[in-house]
């Protein structure tokens, strides 16, 4: 099945306009990993609030006088991404429960690797203070040094290791 996607340059232009609108209106760019962090912080706080408040990592986000960690900009933005992605899939007829991977990988292995990849990506995003959207894309748009370094590190390491993981994709 071949589905038609938007011309990548046009899509990039629109993505740039969305990012520009975010910066122009709210003074900050797009992000994703921050929302995932907020969800974890809120969960840990809900399950074991003493542990969260004493932790040097969660402690800075929870406690007396702090808003609910879910009431943050990126959580709302990511909720929007879910809605927007769904609408786009609906319009283009791509709503389907399916897994996607290289031709030589079984679905269960694909799930396992997706979960491992997700965990690694999140850990990396904590160190870099953001992922491809928050650190690399937004950082580049505002000409932050960190944005360019993070972008080069992500893609640089990807190219170096791609060969060793080729069975996952080709």
């Amino acid at each position: 099945m071949k589905t038609k996607y938007m011309n990548p340059y046009l899509a990039g232009f629109f993505l740039g306009l969305v990012l520009l609108a975010a910066i122009f209106v709210t003074g900050r760019g797009l992000g994703a990993s921050g929302a995932i962090k907020s969800i974890v912080v809120a969960t840990v706080d809900g399950v074991a609030s003493t542990h969260a408040e004493q932790s040097s990592f969660y402690g800075s986000y929870v406690g007396v006088g702090k808003d609910n960690p879910l009431k943050t900009w990126l959580v709302f933005e990511i909720a929007g991404v879910l809605i927007g992605g769904f609408l786009s899939g609906l319009i283009s007829g791509r709503l389907k429960f399916v897994s996607e991977g290289g031709p030589r990988i079984s679905p269960h292995r694909r799930w396992l690797f997706a979960a491992i990849g997700g965990a690694l990506f999140s850990i990396g995003a904590q160190f870099a203070r953001g992922c491809t959207s928050g650190a690399a894309l937004t950082g580049m748009a505002v000409l932050s040094t960190a944005g360019f370094i993070t972008m080069m590190a992500i893609f640089g390491s990807g190219y170096v290791i791609a060969y060793f993981f080729r069975k996952l994709w080709i």
Binding site: L30, G31, A32, S33, A35, I36, I78, V81, L82, I83, G84, G85, F86, S88, G89, R94, L95, K96, F97, V98, E100, G101, F113, A114, A115, I116, G117, G118, A119, L120, F121, S122, I123, G124, A125, Q126, F127, A128, R129, C131, T132, S133, A135, A136, I149, T150, M151, M152, A153, I154, F155, G156, S157, G158, V160, I161, A162, F165, L168, W169
Partner: peptide, 27 residues
């Protein structure tokens, strides 16, 4: 270091956080 780890995450997982949320939204 974070970027390098994210490179591993990208190759192994096939998504980045933003795109994974978007892809999860369509199933």
């Amino acid at each position: 270091v974070g970027g390098i780890i994210m490179g591993f995450g990208f190759i192994i997982g096939g998504y980045c956080p933003g795109t994974s949320v978007c892809a999860a939204a369509i199933g």
